[in-house]
Design a binder for these strands. Structure first.
Lengths: 344, 344
DNA sequence: GATATTTCCGTAAACGATTGCAGTCAATGA
DNA sequence: TCATTGACTGCAATCGTTTACGGAAATATC
């Protein structure tokens, strides 16, 4: 704070003046340009080190039109899957000199629109986004693609073709193997608690469920399928209705571990035995699903793998290896696995 | 992508040319300066709306030296406490027009240093940080304070006076009430699993524990206090040693819910009855502590409150209400509470 | 009708880093 | 000795926005 002005060296010109060089030379040293005398280079480097000069990103970004920053939009990072993906992405990008600006849309579409604009305003070099449950129209990302900023969606992605890279877990297969697992265990009366079908992940998981049921010639009871926001409260209400009058389901498939946990807790409260009377399968391998008693069978999405794929793809685009010729690339699907636990 | 150049209006000069005005006028409209004719203002606003022009933050930041962005550094946002704090901070700042750039140090000191530099390089308007467990020297934040960028620490904060605002949960009291709770329940042989004493939170929690023990004239057995990284693995090892030979402790106080959970799982495995044979208290009210059977008594830190306090303080500094005259402000302590559950 | 006061708008100079171009200087070759 | 080359460095324009200053037009004041 009390540092006198003359020791503050936070512009290239001040460094230049102190070293009796031109700003241009300093800049060249800082950017590892060739054709700088080694003596000069060392002198500059030493001085930079000493004064703790740090390049002003706004100035350099303004000139070069690159910020070395990548924007990331997630609904909420309290969701386990996202925390894992984010961590992988961050360390992957950091290794290549990029910074990650992480933003949370709180599952609000307005916030998401805001964030897309802001990230464009900061002229990030790329944007990665997992959208809101209610994002059906993706045009607020147009401002990015139109200005040649690569966009990459994961998890909750556009259903319509969109000029962006798409990475997702294999939700269809996840739904399929979860349902198949229950059927193979002999369950005859399976209820499915889905999220709203506005979102690709719930569409796909449901489709997987449907396919498994069809394959085994099992009818799907309309009143045993719920499409609702996947909150604990909604799960309890569904359970109440399901067990209001016989016949009772002998298995619950939940599109979400939060729901699966709520189902399990409700069952324990009212004395339904797990897994004897009721088997439960969740989705996404939330840490809580392993810890609760009985532990819950669920689908592992390998978020670290998803993150890795995203890093690879985004780096490709940052290096310019992927031109805009590929307008609507095929989605990249990351495999999932069933983790069997006590609830089945 | 195929948009012809003439419809792209992403600089103030292009807008100006199209509207036959000067860039200055456009800028004044955009910044709500007075002395602009209403007709002109409306004309500009309409055009801005139509073309979707978005201010280039790098250019404006370069000129004004303000970015409307606040940087946040956390060890890992998978930690429940942080996700809550972050969410509160983000929505609080967003309401005042600030963006939050969230960074994760992964509990690595080097990464933290890197991030501090990067945030300075981006010239954020303020920085909020929860430090690494191993951060004892805070001088990498000097570059910020020296350039008048307000810094605000929370949770893991400097122990020595530092020119920054400090917000923390009442760790001393948390340790105190947790220990007192066990003592009041009649526990005579309390073991304490602490984190390394390099970090303020573990120092304070331990001090609270010590105070409670002293107050009740209970001796602290040196070999029943562990100072180690709070991983599940370390917790299990500690348990193994504690129960290798009698006398066995009748209560475990953990400085962390992760540790408490590991302790509980170990106890269940080897057949120690909770809470009859062993009572367990954790810290920080991780969602898992409520869900596990038996549920774990823990200390609630009210992360949303902490976040709220941070927002208030940071806004004060951003508005310039707090000058640099207050060099070493008193830490702001946010109250904690004991949540009693089945494990005691 | 002349002057003073507003109101509105444009000019131009910043902010700090980058980079094409051109200039300097020493070394080399003829 | 002079021209040529190449290695190094400086000049100056540029990126897009903001803002002090001044000018022009419109209105108000006497």
């Amino acid at each position: 704070m009390k540092t006198p002005k003359q020791t503050k060296k936070n512009s290239i010109q001040e460094l230049a003046k102190a070293l009796r060089l031109s700003p241009a030379t300093i800049s060249r040293v800082l950017n590892n340009h060739p054709h700088v005398h080694t003596t000069t280079r060392n002198r500059v480097m030493a001085f930079v080190e000493k004064t703790g000069y740090t390049r002003n990103i706004m100035a350099s970004g303004l000139r070069t039109n690159r910020t070395n920053a990548v924007g990331l939009i997630v609904p909420r990072f309290s969701m386990f899957m996202h925390t894992e993906v984010i961590t992988t992405i961050q360390s992957g990008l950091h290794a290549h000199g990029y910074n990650l600006i992480i933003c949370q849309s709180n599952d609000s579409l307005d916030m998401e629109k805001d964030l897309a604009r802001t990230l464009y305003a900061s002229r990030v070099d790329a944007v990665i986004a997992a959208c809101t449950l209610s994002t059906a129209d993706f045009s607020h990302f147009d401002i990015l693609t139109e200005n040649d900023i690569p966009v990459l969606f994961y998890d909750r992605v556009p259903v319509q073709p969109y000029n962006a890279c798409i990475v997702k877990g294999d939700d269809f297969r996840g739904g399929f193997i979860a349902a198949s697992h229950l059927i193979q265990l002999g369950c005859k009366r399976i209820s499915y608690l889905s999220g709203s079908l506005t979102c690709n992940i719930y569409i796909d998981r449901y489709a997987g469920f449907e396919k498994a049921m069809m394959q085994h010639k099992m009818a799907i009871r309309k009143d045993w399928v719920f499409y609702q926001e996947l909150t604990a409260d909604n799960a309890r209400k569904a359970m109440y209705r399901l067990f209001a009058k016989a016949p009772f389901p002998d298995a619950i498939m939940a599109a979400n571990d939060v729901t699966a946990i709520a189902v399990l807790e409700y069952a324990k409260e009212v004395g339904i035995k797990i897994p004897e009377d009721l088997r439960i399968v969740g989705y996404s391998n939330d840490p809580r699903s392993a810890i609760i008693t009985p532990s819950i069978t669920t689908i592992e999405q390998f978020p670290a793998n998803i993150g890795q794929v995203i890093v690879t793809e985004v780096l490709k685009r940052l290096k310019g290896d992927v031109g805009s010729e590929v307008l609507y690339p095929e989605p990249i699907i990351v495999p999932v696995e069933l983790i069997r636990r006590m609830s089945t």
